[in-house]
Amino acid sequence: MFRSRAYFWFVAPAIILMIVILIAPVFVAAVLSFSDYNLGNPDFNWVGFKNYAALMKYSSYKKMFTASLFYVFLVVPISVGLGLGAALLISTLRFGGELYKAVFFLPVMATLLAMAIVWEFALHPVVGVVNDVLRSGCDIGWLHSLLTSSWLGFDPAQSWYGNACADDFPLWLGDKRYALGTIAFIGIWQAFGFNMVLYLAGLTSVPRELYNAAHMDGADSAWERFKLVTWPMLGPTHVFVVTITSIRSFQVFDTVEALTRGGPSKSTYVMVYAMFEKGVKQNLLGVGSALTVVFLAFVLILTITQVWFVNRRVHYA
């Protein structure tokens, strides 16, 4: 009868699409990573591990791994920390919490590519607002002495701000010392509201009684209550937020492609951008596929670590 077979028609399209669109590409990438395949040329050779060896050998790929890892190590702790901080402040506010929440969530919603372009204008070395504001701070005595620590008796010329005032402020995206940090700043700006929302959800699930119990045990200061109750009870949220932020920041592309194209001198040459440049722009699909495989391995390691943590460490209840 039709009924007994209905499941087949319900499940088959999804299975076929999963296999063709999600699983087959992984194998295609794995196979092509051992070749010098390119589009437009029907012949290609098997080159063994040459593509992988290239990833180990050339300095541009070393710079790629450095840039990607550095970006992740900048964005993850700061955006998680800011997310947690914002959530803690907002959840204890008497009024206005909803408003801050909406404001901090705005960057998550807004088209990242578009906002990256706005940041690029804001960070423009000559006409940009950021350097404009920083420059005008140099002429305000108390601000200058605060930011250069000269009010503590330090020499202003020793500080970053004092130097920048005397000389000039950075080119930000155009300077290889600052470019990756600037891209990371935009990443943090975009991501921390997302983490904040996850932490706010986590905070509502901390039982009130635990705070009373901690109070009875003599945990009087807010810091002690945080250390004894809030932080450990947020365990599952921590694992979750850290993993998802790591995976996402590992996939950074939009800001790099639009603002720096991996430069200056490959300082922002992150993995997904390298994949795009080698595979799509330069039609070096063998190398691009090898990059894809390495990238996939990184992400799977992150995900498996998360699952392992969730199963092992964070069961308090």
């Binding site: 999600l22 590409p25 992984v26 092509l32 592309f253 994949m275 799509v280 691009g288 894809t292 992400v299």
Partner: peptide, 8 residues
């Protein structure tokens, strides 16, 4: 992850 299968 979607970015990983984009190239193939």
């Amino acid at each position: 992850p979607v970015h990983a299968i984009a190239l193939p």
